[in-house]
Structures are given as C-alpha cells and as structure tokens.
C-alpha cells in the first residue's frame, strides 16, 4: 500500500480506509511453512484440528515466502540458519510480520551460554513484532501471540504521521 501511505492527513476517509485495510490484513495473516526446531511441533499442533488456527484466518501455511505475511520463527536459530532466515525474510512481500516463538528464538534460551553456534535472539537477524516465551510455548500461547499481532495490525494507519514542529529557520 505504499502508493497511499504517508500521503494524506488523518481524516474520515482515511480512517475508514484504515479500518477496511486493517480488517483485511488482520483476518488473513498467512504464515510461512517454516519450522526450525521443536517449537514447530507446537506450531503444527496449533494449526491442526484441536486448536485450529484457521479460526483466526492464520491457518493457511504458505509454502513460499512470496505468499506469506507472517514468519513464525519456531525454534533454535543457528548461525547457519540465520543467513537463510534473513534471505527468506527479504523474499516476503510487504506488509510482513515476524513472531519470535520460544525461548531460543527470543534470546538463545538454554543455549545462551554454551551454544557456540546459536544466535542469541532472532531479533539480531530480522525485526520481531511479537515475542512468545515458553519452552516450547503451548498452542494457546501462540494463539495469544497471533491475537496480539492482530491488535498491532488493527492500530496501523496509512495516514501521514502528525508533523513535529520544526524550529523556525533563522531569518537571513
């Protein structure tokens, strides 16, 4: 939506448009099929019948980053994988979000001290929107994280941010 973003002041048309865009975005957050370690088991359980991520429109796991809106980094990120994660993130189209799921992804987890090849937090590699603690987090936690992400999306706007008053230029 870059053709409209930051072009208009906040007004009634823009807020209505915001409502429609955000409703569409938050109702169909398609995650990428991307599980790195054991947290992916909980992510699969979340997508399956018992917890049924499709209730929130986020159950359509896409097999390519080019169709995905959300990257759930579910598992330990190694340095070997970090390059791949960065590349996959760059291949995702805007708008895109990242959920850091589990202790390893947030800050290295149990591998923080002696894990010689574990990235100490995936936010050193890609920007993270929602952190979900747990080892691994239960499916309820992942659903809660996705609901928090929906809250974030709901408060986005395409309007131009209010201009901060600049100091008056010194008259010549």
């Amino acid at each position: 939506m870059s053709w409209i973003e930051n072009r208009f002041e906040d007004n009634v048309i823009i807020t209505s448009l915001d409502w429609a865009i955000n409703w569409a975005r938050e109702s169909s957050i398609w995650p990428m099929t991307f599980g790195i370690a054991c947290c992916a088991i909980e992510m699969m359980a979340t997508g399956a019948a018992r917890w049924d991520l499709d209730r929130f429109g986020a159950g359509a796991f896409r097999a390519t980053p080019r169709q995905a809106d959300l990257m759930i980094v579910a598992g330990t990120v190694t340095y070997k994988m970090a390059d791949r994660i960065r590349r996959l993130y760059n291949q995702m189209p805007e708008p895109k979000w990242v959920i850091a799921m589990g202790a390893c992804t947030i800050g290295g987890g149990p591998y923080f001290k002696h894990g010689y090849h574990v990235v100490k937090g995936v936010d050193l590699v890609v920007p993270v929107d929602v952190y979900i603690p747990g080892c691994p987090p239960r499916p309820e936690s992942l659903i809660e994280g996705i609901l928090r992400l929906r809250d974030m999306i709901r408060h986005q706007t395409v309007a131009r941010p209010p201009e901060t008053p600049q100091p008056a230029a010194a008259s010549a």
Binding site: Y79, A82, D83, F112, K113, Y116, H117, V119, K120, L124, V125
Partner: peptide
C-alpha cells in the same frame, strides 16, 4: 572446532553479534 575443550567462541559471525558480555 567447537567441541575442543580449548575452543573460544567467536565474537561475531556474518555480522551477527555472537557472544554477549555474560557469555
């Protein structure tokens, strides 16, 4: 070779800071 007992962890790898002050 990381499992050698005198191995020193790298300070950064491919631009990612690898070792925190605590580690």
């Amino acid at each position: 070779h990381p499992l050698r007992k005198d191995y020193e962890q790298p300070l950064e790898f491919h631009g990612i800071p690898a070792v925190t002050e605590y580690a």
